[in-house]
Design a protein around this nucleic acid. Structure first.
Lengths: 223, 223, 223, 223
DNA sequence: TATGAATGAGAATTCATTCAT
DNA sequence: GATGAATGAATTCTCATTCAT
């Protein structure tokens, strides 16, 4: 029990350092943020930092990794959700919308981490970008697979999925950056409606009535 | 004549340093790139660098400024082009497509500069991001104005322009990053068609036939 | 105790750096002396220097400040000494002589610091001179006040105190530079006698017998 | 004739550079003053500077040399003047006073050069001090010789000439620094009177009446 | 485990001097 | 002679990381 509690304390401290680092990296950028900033803010000694992390770089990588893990998990859940909906004959577009909501909620709730990933980690200074590209690739795969499902259910007009996915991902990232990280006071639900409306209209087959489909996708319990 | 040629030689050298710096910044990132790297690659002495630029930072800023100027000019041209087309009763959607082509061509032709702006300059390390945000704001204004024109000509369904612009800009940046910076061997014309098809379908009013409108926008002289 | 000893060790090291810097500045001058010289001589690493001082400039300033503090304290003591002697009806001229002795002893015992202040810090290169001028002003004030005391006790002939003080200070500085900094093997006591003899004769009222007054001021316990 | 005029023009330019350098060295100090400052102020090209001087150091040395020459010449004149006065049975003290006046006038008329010599050239940064010490030694010798003359004419009380000369030189330098370089609006004649009064009283034999001697030395033609 | 003083490689910048024109 | 662009050695300072206590 004491050994475990020591380990727990250690985990707690490690976690604390990561939290502090998140804020600092997000506020000053990776390079300008110094180990001195982090240990000061965390209230620990310089050396202690190196008991928990091998380097400043490792902390940053772990943050990205954490985003990676969280987000990949989220994408997997979304994927399952859509798959289940298709399997159960549910409203796939509404499932898609729910997925979009979850993605937005996650980023709204983790603004510092998001900022780190999309503003700091893209630079080539530290080759973090490799890992970010990997994550991006993973997200792309998931999205492609989801669109394939929709294709199989005749919910997609003929299109180049690679381009479509690039468009959807780019627009999503930009929505996150512009409307979730900045204080926009924007209602997430209406944001999701507008986004869904855009992509659904852009992607449904010609034989379907866009307005009808969209309404079915975004309509919510009255009130 | 000699005086002029001296000044010309100076311009040439300055330009050369900027070119070299573009490649190096784009390759290693702003921080890892040292003045030593630049002068070595440029084949000049350390002090010569400071004859043309006040600091490493200034070179970087000038590159961003250059992108800003170029791109702002391009956006203005595009804006005029669309305005003229509307005024002359031309095919506005095709004009839009031509604008998209010009934007893609510029970025395809300036991959290093593009990489610097969208990967390096976003980070908060050096407060370059402020200038980038400004540029982004300018682009957004232009785009909003263009959509307003389309709205006035009943070419747009009811929508939240702020969100739409965020989507269009985000998707465009991502297209640039994924399909123009990387060796995709992608044909630019077909890329433009796919993009136009997406956005037009997403935005046209319900009473229009999407396929017909899209075909009119992207059809090119047979061949 | 360990915490204290750490702090003590830090003070010791700081002091050591200052000592080394004093010698080096005095030997090569402020500009030619590099931080590299100091750390090498002090047997510490480059970064360690900056652990104790913000800059090379700061070290120099601290040395001047130290001289300022020491010397101002000395002047204050001298002032009190003369004041007390007057109050107690003692031999004011002998008190003056004792003051002169103390000033000479201090400078003889701190030759490097003295050299820094009077050779390096006067130059306009680094604006150290401002501080030196301040010190000089302070010394001047003290001296004027002391002469006023003597004036009140009818020990001074009518004279322009400003000029007199300039003469006394200039001659003192030059005595320090010529006879205390260089290896003159000069006996300090006889030096003081000569100096006192000069200034007393120059300043006493006409009605007094110079030889008698001087003898009273400089005569010491037989030997 | 043209060749000569070319040479004359060259001398003029050289002289101009020296003048400009005097002001700049005196204003910013030797180290902070850059060759760039000098050539800019002189209105010549960088390279031109090196046609007339081997280095920045050389300009400075030449300025000190110039002071040396001027001042040594002045001291020689003063020496002759005193010698002649003694030889002709004139008023030696008044001759001394005239010498003091000449010294003060020279420094008042050459404030920048004076400032350079006594503030900048003392520092050990550039080993200019060696030359300054030489000058100082020369002045000392002259002064000693003059005092010897006075000694021979029984105008001096018994004293240690080395110390006396140190006192006289130090006080003179300080008078120059404090009352001639700064805007004191001080009348030179009254300054000389005060100085003479001080030194004469300090140095005359006991059997002479100080007031009388001083009055004889400083009294000037009424009005 | 925790500490924080010490380390030293590395980077940006300056400026006296040179030299091709 | 005159020019001024080019040079590169030299210097200060930073900060991630180590290690003795």
């Amino acid at each position: 029990m004491p050994a475990q509690s020591v380990s727990e304390a250690a985990n707690k401290r490690r976690e604390h350092i990561l939290e502090v680092a998140t804020e600092i990296f997000s506020g000053k950028g990776y390079r300008r943020a110094s180990v001195a900033d982090i240990v000061e803010q965390a209230g620990i000694a310089r050396g202690t930092f190196y008991l928990y992390f091998e380097s400043k770089r490792e902390v940053f990588l772990e943050l990205i990794e954490r985003y990676f893990t969280d987000f990949a998990e989220l994408l997997n859940e979304n994927h399952r959700h859509l798959g289940n909906t298709f399997r159960d004959g549910g409203n796939a577009l509404r499932a898609w919308r729910e997925n979009v909501m979850r993605i937005m909620e996650y980023h709204r709730d983790n603004p510092h981490l998001t900022s780190i990933v999309y503003r700091e980690a893209l630079g080539k200074d530290e080759d973090f970008s490799e890992r970010v590209d990997e994550l991006s690739g993973f997200a792309r795969e998931k999205l492609v697979a989801e669109f394939r499902m929709m294709e199989e259910h005749s919910m997609l007009r003929p299109c180049d999925l690679e381009i479509v996915v690039t468009i959807v991902m780019g627009s999503t990232v930009n929505i996150i950056m512009e409307h979730l990280l900045k204080e926009s006071g924007r209602n997430l639900e209406s944001l999701a409606d507008e986004i869904m409306s855009y992509h659904i209209r852009a992607l449904i087959p010609a034989n379907l009535d866009a307005d009808v489909v969209v309404r079915a996708a975004i309509s919510r319990p009255t009130g």
